[in-house]
Design a protein around this nucleic acid. Structure first.
Lengths: 230, 230
DNA sequence: GATAGTTTCATACAACTGTTTGAATTGCAA
DNA sequence: TTGCAATTCAAACAGTTGTATGAAACTATC
């Protein structure tokens, strides 16, 4: 109890350095130097480097998931057990997007750390992400309630694409900003969330009845290339 | 000239090991053991480990980009200089998706290597990816020709989301398969490409006239949460 | 204020890393 | 065959890494 100070100094220093320089080239010695503690303190307090990283990620990750479930719960209560589908997507992509994007977040260590974690995907973090499935199932369940009768596979694809767009926007915000030469405003987080949600909602209708594929792939496409054309 | 054999043995061994175990825990010694060559051969033929990885990635990456541009060119010729928007997206996402997904590709070292490269994003690979911007600009230009008058930012967002969905599907195919308990068929590559393309096309209309935001965020959402609610 | 338990510290450890070296070998041209 | 360059090889290098150790310093309890 006495020396929570060392523990949290390590956590803060590690998060800052990982956020700034990535997991690849930050050593325990860098961390303890930044934290002004002894090298052995990391193993004493956390057991190993990987466990330190895991604790760092779990903390932030749990916070995001809590926000998500809170929003989801409120939306379902408001809808009498059935949240509108866009509210479900807002709950899913809003917290991570707001957590990682936006001008005020630019200086946030936590935000930059989570972006790093999203980009680099080091083993201890990957292990944690793999347990995220249970969390996502709650959203699938909510989607099922919201759109009863909808094919389950469609719901999974919808969730998948929603995560694709939010994660990819977080991961590649720099590149998109550079590619678009500033024409995509990555500081207007609300607009981004709106955009991701509305596309996600539309995506849910994309694969409707696979047999109807031709309706979403218009005649203009009849000449779609196959491999042997190349 | 005489010993291209050593060079290509190294390339093949490296690609296989990286594909199997990731960049994180494959050392030069692992590679030369697999290739049955001397340790110094890597530095002799490639200069450094990073240059070896770069050559590996550049080769596969160039092939994909060539396929993309071929398809794009053919589509534009067929349309008399203006390819239909969905054909542009097919050219963009088809090659990487076909290259990395599908049952036949399961055993393909190249496919698994590219998936790894997409997941782990090691420095030499990141450096190459950053130069991909020029390549993407060609697709933006094609989109501009296809949809004249459309706001440029919309085109960038459309391209961004298309890449988001294709990359994320490649990266997380395992997770999606597990989450959906097999209900999402990740072996039917054509269906996946169709799905990504159709959502991408729809996405292009999502942010139309930002002022119209309320039309894609219906009344049911007026109670959307803000941070202080949590 | 002695004691037991916790925390800090300097230091060493052991292993692994990519890279370099210089000699040996090979292959080819004259 | 001789000579020269390209290639291979074993070995060592120089540096870094996460972790372990055992003594020292501290803290709180009795």
């Amino acid at each position: 109890m006495s020396s929570d100070r060392t523990r949290s100094a390590i956590l803060a220093a590690a998060e800052k350095l990982y956020a700034d320089r990535g997991f690849g080239d930050v050593t325990l010695r860098d961390i303890v130097a930044e934290a002004n503690v002894n090298l052995a303190a990391v193993n004493y307090h956390f057991g190993s480097k990987d466990e330190l990283i895991a604790e760092l990620f779990v903390t932030r990750s749990l916070a995001t998931n809590r926000e998500r479930l809170n929003e989801l719960k409120l939306a379902e209560e408001k809808g009498g057990g059935r949240a509108p589908i866009d509210a479900i997507f807002y709950a899913l992509v809003g917290p991570p997007l707001r957590g990682c994007l936006g001008p005020d977040r630019e200086g946030s260590t936590a935000a930059r750390f989570m972006i790093r974690a999203s980009i680099e995907s080091v083993p201890p973090i990957r292990r944690i992400k793999n347990r995220e499935v249970d969390h996502l199932r709650k959203f699938i369940a909510a989607m099922r309630r919201s759109l009863p009768g909808r094919d389950d596979a469609e719901l999974y694809w919808g969730l998948h694409f929603a995560l694709a767009m939010s994660h990819h926007t977080i991961r590649e915000k720099e590149r998109l900003s550079r590619l678009s030469e500033g024409q995509c405003d990555l500081n207007d987080v609300d607009a981004i969330v709106d955009r991701v949600v509305s596309v996600s909602v539309m995506a849910l209708t994309a694969g409707q009845t696979p047999a109807k594929k031709t309706s979403v792939r218009p005649a203009a496409l009849h000449g779609r290339l196959t491999r042997q054309d190349l």
